[in-house]
Amino acid sequence: MESEVYYVNFKKGDINNSTGPQTQSQGQDDGKSQKSMRFGRFCNPQGSRSLVLITVGLGLICVLLLVFVILQHIIITAERDRIKSYKNTVKEFNQTISGLQDNYTDLKTEKDQLQNNFRSLSQQILELESQVRSLKDELNMDASERVCLFISNELNWADSRQYCRDHGGDLLIINTEEKQRFIFSLVEERVWIGLSDREQEGNMKWVDNSPLNEGFWLGGEPNNQDGNEDCVELIPSHPVLNSWNDLPCSKMKKGICEK
């Protein structure tokens, strides 16, 4: 097909007129196009979606930070409370230990006291057993061997003997261990007995003039201290078989009499 060629004649004025308005219109169109492009970039749906995502992300970060801060506060508070509780527990434990130490000291003291009491009671039991044996021996004595005992006033040895004789008896004679134990269990204070070496120093005799066969002396007695101890007393505060002592006959004390 043959192309068709069209020839258009324009006047010079027409060209200028047509060119001028066309150029202005084109400029206006270009300006509108640029504004449309800038507005299009600002109002781009993809850009709005990114902005929303960024905003949401920042919000989540803020929430996470807030949660982290709250958790840290809770952890620190719990740790502080735990440390405080631990300190209180340690304090109570130390107080308990101190109390137990005091109780241990008290119990140890009480134990020592109980041991002392036990030893004392054991000694008393032994003495009571000895007294029981003496009483049994006394009860087993024949009627002829039994004696009537009484105590004189507080006098010297010679006057005490005279008191006993005035009342139908004489100062006590102790010639057996059984009788010593029995008499020892009865007396509660130092008393004269009927033994002396007034007639001959070192030759102890009873008031019936019989010699001494068995004595129950304190350690180191008789010692005739100062050369003037010729009469004999019984001291109940000493051991039962070590309770005799010589001393001056002029001393004032009660005497134990028998008849």
Rank of each mutant, 00 (worst) to 15 (best):
M1Y: 14
E4S: 08
V8H: 13
D14I: 02
N16C: 07
N17A: 08
S18Q: 11
P21G: 11
Q22I: 07
T23I: 08
D30N: 15
R38V: 00
R41P: 02
F42W: 11
P45V: 00
Q46A: 05
Q46R: 10
L51C: 06
T55H: 10
L60N: 15
I61D: 10
L66N: 12
T77M: 14
A78V: 09
R80C: 03
R80M: 08
I83R: 11
Y86P: 00
N94R: 13
Q95V: 00
S98A: 15
S98E: 11
S98H: 13
Q101P: 01
T105F: 08
D106Q: 10
K111R: 14
K111L: 06
K111G: 03
Q115D: 14
Q115A: 06
N116T: 08
N117I: 04
R119P: 02
Q123S: 09
E127D: 13
E129R: 12
S130N: 12
Q131K: 12
Q131W: 13
R133K: 12
L135K: 13
N140P: 01
A143S: 13
A143V: 10
E145Y: 06
R146S: 05
R146T: 05
V147S: 08
C148M: 13
C148Q: 15
N153Y: 12
E154A: 07
S160Y: 06
R161A: 00
Y163A: 02
C164L: 09
R165S: 07
G169F: 02
K179N: 08
Q180S: 01
R181K: 12
L186E: 13
L186H: 13
V187I: 14
R190I: 01
R190C: 01
I193H: 00
Q200G: 04
E201N: 12
E201S: 15
N203A: 09
V207L: 10
V207N: 15
D208G: 06
S210V: 06
P211H: 11
N213H: 09
N213R: 10
P222R: 03
Q225A: 04
E229F: 01
E229H: 07
D230G: 01
E233Y: 00
E233W: 02
I235M: 04
P236C: 02
S237I: 01
S237P: 03
H238N: 08
P239Y: 02
V240L: 05
S243N: 04
W244V: 00
N245R: 04
P248V: 00
M252E: 15
K253Y: 06
G255Y: 04
I256N: 01
C257Y: 08
